[in-house]
């Protein structure tokens, strides 16, 4: 055994007390022809074992880039982590050499992508791709890996797993394909799963099935789950807490049910108002005015200020820190935070 191997092994057994994953002041930049795009600007969040964190935001908010930085699969170049720490079981994995990061990927932390069809290799059978996990990380033979693949397909309830293990991605339905992606993620029973919009490409009825499956598997093995989505509806039943991202920053954090009742940031408020509701039939759907910010030229002050109905002068000059949100009488609201100068006005009216 090399020292590299033992170091990777030791991760996952140490620091049982603290959170499973802690992202601290993470900055990610992309070098482009027109300048440096600051995709993530100081993100902090944490996930404990058995906990589900939903990261919410529109495209370009930095939610996926943060996830890729955690996994160590940023396209680099042009992307790079400019600042910050990612503590996994208490150890800063950004300081690890690539060979050790690789051993964590798939093994201790796994990722589920949005589009299962393009995320599965079209010319390799799904059984082969599932089996690769065991062959790469546990050195299993091709034959044993195939057996494991069938077990996994059974576990995510793909009918006739034994007959279908040799089929290719395009021969499965969208929901079944996403189940295969989930099977791949849980293959080695990782401590952390990051699901990047896992149900966006699916029909609504299938969405619920896939989410239920994911939640069930998570409960069974007490994994930490980061659920990245732009769909507030998906989050409600599964997540424990929510982090809302805008322009590479977290603008609001809250336990999941509170955010629906009492958002403390104008952006979250706008998101909630733009969910279509049956009792509003015939009325025009609300949309937050303006466009998501250009990451090459993020507005000064609060990045949301050009689109915000409450914006004052201070919003155009000062970047709001993540304020601790409390009741109007000062009573505690654990886990709540809002990066808005006027969070009191927003939540308490």
């Amino acid at each position: 055994m090399t020292t590299v191997e033992t170091a990777a092994e030791s991760i996952g057994t140490t620091a049982a007390g603290g959170p499973l994953l802690e992202v601290r002041d993470l900055h990610v930049e992309f070098k482009t022809r027109d300048g440096v795009a600051k995709a993530v600007n100081g993100v902090n969040y944490s996930v404990s074992a058995g906990e589900t964190l939903a990261v919410l935001g529109e495209s370009g908010s930095g939610k996926s880039v943060t996830a890729q930085a955690i996994m160590g699969i940023l396209d680099s170049p042009p992307g790079r982590v400019a600042q910050g720490e990612i503590l996994f079981h208490g150890q800063n994995i950004l300081a690890l050499p690539e060979s050790e990061r690789r051993k964590l990927r798939g093994n201790k932390m796994a990722m589920i992508f949005q589009d299962a069809l393009s995320s599965l290799n079209p010319v390799l059978s799904v059984g082969f791709q599932l089996g690769e996990m065991f062959r790469a990380h546990q050195g299993l033979s091709k034959k044993d890996a195939k057996k494991k693949a069938i077990e996994l397909m059974d576990r995510v309830r793909i009918p006739a797993a034994k007959e279908r293990v040799g089929d290719y991605a395009h021969q499965f339905s969208g929901g079944m394909r996403q189940r295969i992606m989930i099977a791949m993620a849980i293959a080695l029973e990782p401590d952390l799963i990051i699901a990047d919009e896992p149900t966006t490409a699916l029909d609504v009825t299938v969405q619920a099935q896939v989410m239920d499956l994911l939640a069930e598997l998570q409960r069974e093995s007490n994994m930490g789950l980061i659920l990245i989505t732009h769909d507030l509806g998906v989050v409600a039943d599964v997540a424990d807490k929510i982090a809302v991202m805008y322009a590479g920053r977290i603008v609001e954090t809250a336990p999941v049910h509170e955010i629906y009742k009492r958002p403390a940031h104008p952006y979250t408020k706008g998101l909630l108002r733009s969910i279509p509701r049956l009792d509003q039939k015939g009325q025009e759907l609300y949309a937050i005015k303006g466009l998501p910010p250009n990451l090459l030229a993020v507005p000064s002050g609060c990045a949301f200020n050009p689109r915000c109905e409450m914006a004052q002068d201070i919003c155009r000059t000062d970047v709001p820190p993540l304020h601790t949100v409390t009741e109007a009488d000062g009573g505690e609201l654990p886990g709540r935070g809002s990066a808005c100068h006027f969070w009191k006005e927003t939540i308490h009216g």
């Binding site: 996994m71 699969i73 690789r102 051993k103 964590l104 990927r105 798939g106 093994n107 796994a110 990722m111 992508f113 589009d115 393009s118 995320s119 599965l120 290799n121 079209p122 690769e132 996990m133 790469a136 990380h137 791949m184």
Partner: peptide, 11 residues
């Protein structure tokens, strides 16, 4: 995307 998947699998 499937190359990204392969990287994320730790191959």
């Amino acid at each position: 995307d499937y190359v990204k998947t392969a990287v994320a699998k730790g191959l």
